[in-house]
């Protein structure tokens, strides 16, 4: 199979043999896949500056089987996002989420567009936390694990801004009755509704939603923790 000039980002790369590397790509039309890039780690390689994370690329590869050969990689013709300082750990976090949650060869054009937009959002503003939370919400939605942020999963009533809820994963929010004693995370109706509307402007809402999403994402990724969380100081 020969693929030409496919829009893609690099999620991860690791050295292979002396001068080659194995590159984990996230491509628009072929999903996540690994390719081998021959000679791109040698001192003379011109590809080194191109093959960097968080840069929109056009990539060509050819070959059958598990590990096709990268035949060309060029930066996209438009201005790349500038991911620096505090946005760098966020980028690694998103890459790790994609690697952990998206199967290889699952084609996901919408997720690719989401990823692309998030990279530019990181490059443009300093609302990194909000960008991350909105990405997490949409990511779960696109993968079929969408959250219920509008109604009580037991009673079916609409979420009430004044009430408190416990969010049961794969079920939804359930209103806390005054007598329940629990060590589970309690989320205010206000935070759930704010997250539904994608307006995370108060500190307390952000804190609650961050904790909620941490629990939910931990559930979906399984027991192996996300290492990129260690990059946030």
């Amino acid at each position: 199979m020969r693929v030409q000039d496919q829009p893609a980002y690099i999620l991860h790369q690791r050295p292979f043999r002396d001068t080659s590397q194995i590159i984990e790509l996230f491509s628009r039309d072929y999903g996540r896949l690994s390719v081998i890039s021959r000679g791109s780690r040698s001192a003379k390689s011109k590809l080194k500056s191109t093959l960097q994370l968080f840069q929109p690329l056009h990539v060509s590869w050819s070959g059958k089987g598990e590990l096709p050969l990268l035949t060309r990689a060029e930066p996209a013709e438009y201005k790349p996002p500038v991911i620096k300082s505090r946005a760098l750990p966020c980028g690694f976090y998103i890459n790790e989420l994609i690697v952990r949650l998206l199967h290889q060869h699952d084609i996901h054009e919408e997720l690719f567009d989401l990823y692309h937009n998030v990279m530019y959002a990181f490059g443009n503003n300093d609302e990194l936390e909000v960008t991350l939370r909105l990405f997490e919400k949409e990511l779960l939605q696109l993968l079929g694990f969408g959250l219920n942020l509008v109604s009580d999963a037991d009673s079916g009533e609409l979420i009430d801004e004044q009430s408190d809820y416990i969010y049961y994963i794969e079920h939804g929010p359930v209103r806390v009755t005054s007598l329940v004693k629990t060590d589970q995370l309690i989320i205010s109706g206000k935070s759930l509704l704010a997250y539904e509307k994608s307006v995370l402007d108060s500190g307390s809402v952000r804190r609650e939603i961050k904790q909620l999403m941490r629990n939910i994402i931990n559930y979906y990724i399984g027991s192996k923790p996300l290492r990129s969380r260690e990059l946030f100081r």
Binding site: L53, S85, L88, R233
Partner: peptide, 18 residues
Amino acid sequence: PTVEGETTAHYISQMAQE
């Protein structure tokens, strides 16, 4: 001067700043 190198530098610079 790679993305990984920059990230490492950023992490250590925060440590220095603290």
